[in-house]
Amino acid sequence: MRKWFRAAALLLAVAAMAMLFTGCDEALGGGTLRVGVKTDIANFGLYDEESGRYSGMEVDLAQMLCSELGYGALELVPVTTGNREEKLTNGEIDMMIATVTMTEERREAYAFSAPYYTDHVRIMVEESSMIEGLADLEGCVIGVRENTDHALSLVNYMAEQGMIQPVDGDAFDPETYSGAVTFRVIGTYAAVSDALESGEVDAFLADGSILSGFHDDGRVLLPDELSEQPYGVGMVKGSSLSGRVSEIIDRWLEDGTIATLTEKWRI
């Protein structure tokens, strides 16, 4: 009898201890998912030095994928447009969710999911300039960042709209072009924004995602959407991940999860 009691007592004591530790999380097994994200695009992938935190739609997407795929932890690896593909190929990252436009060449080189966001090149103007549409842009100075093809996109678009004669893409140079509009090529996006503020340029031409970071009360986006740029999750071709990720993204596009994300970040 005494023996039984001892055993029971021990069991109860253990149970008591266990109860006291209720609520302790225990990490279940699983590896680490490494995702490359941007650090300087507001609302997509932005890194804040002070708090050490990433924020943005793509960051959220990475977290959601991580738990959906069953990984134990997520590691966010900062990438730039220049080095993201390299990091993917040499294995530093498992996938890149970093405003990667799915161009033809890229599609050949990597596996992509369906586009989770379709960006366009947009035109941002100051409200006080009273420019409301493409037609008002005639004679205006458009600010673009160097080494981008946005100017060409605009010109092509305007040609499509019948505003101007079509232009030869190869010979096109934004710095010298003088047609219905003129371009000012500026070194950084921030500088273009300042130029817009002071009125040096009448419009800011860039990806919508970029423009969203410079948007404020007195500025407005023209409704025109140029040059579609779908963003997708980029992975190594043939990896086991790509199939699962694509399937998940497809599902989320259908059931509105992605739409919620877009709404949340107001993009």
Binding site: E126, E127, S128, S129, M130, I131, C140, D194, E197, S198, G199, E200, D202, D217, G218
Partner: peptide
């Protein structure tokens, strides 16, 4: 003359003032 000031240059006439706007200087 810049387009930036378009709103300033198009008053409504009579005793109407233009729509005010802000410019952040350097």
């Amino acid at each position: 003359t810049r387009n930036r000031f378009n709103m300033l240059r198009s008053p409504g006439g009579d005793d109407r003032t233009t729509q005010p706007f802000n410019i952040t200087g350097e």
